[in-house]
């Protein structure tokens, strides 16, 4: 089974990145052999729609499980439409996250748990409105 963990760097000992759409790396790990691939997130610095791009990137890797801290309102329906199980883990290393997943201590993410860019937009007299 292929597990995707969002990470701040390459390798199993790197830290879990709490953000899905703008994480630095995706670690795609085979939970049986613990073979892994470190894939840079192409939408790390996208101006908008990062979660959508990131979701397409990992779904095209054929993953079965996603472990991350939070998903925005656009990424969540994409990931869940492909029946991927999503588990919440925002701290520790990638290998610790996988161990927690295996022993059943991670909770499921059942809905978007991050406001994303649009929902989090603040109004302010001098704010820059980039649209």
């Amino acid at each position: 089974m292929k597990i995707c963990v969002t990470a701040t760097a390459e390798g199993l000992e790197s830290s879990v990145d709490p953000h899905f759409g703008r994480c630095v790396y995706f670690l795609i790990v085979d939970d049986g052999s613990m073979d892994f691939e470190s894939v840079p997130n192409e939408s790390f610095s996208a101006s908008g729609g990062a979660g959508i791009q990131a979701a397409q990137q990992v779904l095209n890797k054929g993953i079965d499980v996603l472990i991350t801290g939070s998903l925005g309102p656009n990424a969540f329906p994409l990931i869940s439409s492909e029946n991927i199980e999503i588990y919440e883990c925002a701290t520790g290393s990638v290998s610790e996250a996988i161990a927690s997943y295996k022993n059943g201590s991670l909770g499921r993410i059942e809905a978007s748990n991050s406001p994303g860019k649009q929902g989090g937009k603040q109004r302010n007299g001098s704010s820059q409105k980039n649209n």
């Binding site: 939408s43 996208a46 908008g48 729609g49 990062a50 959508i52 791009q53 979701a55 397409q56 779904l59 095209n60 054929g62 656009n74 329906p77 994409l78 439409s81 492909e82 649009q118």
Partner: peptide, 18 residues
């Protein structure tokens, strides 16, 4: 260029606000 349309293994999804 705005990631308003996503192509997945099972279908295409549109994000109207983008």
């Amino acid at each position: 260029q705005y990631n308003a349309i996503a192509s997945l293994p099972s279908g295409v999804m549109v994000f109207p606000k983008l």
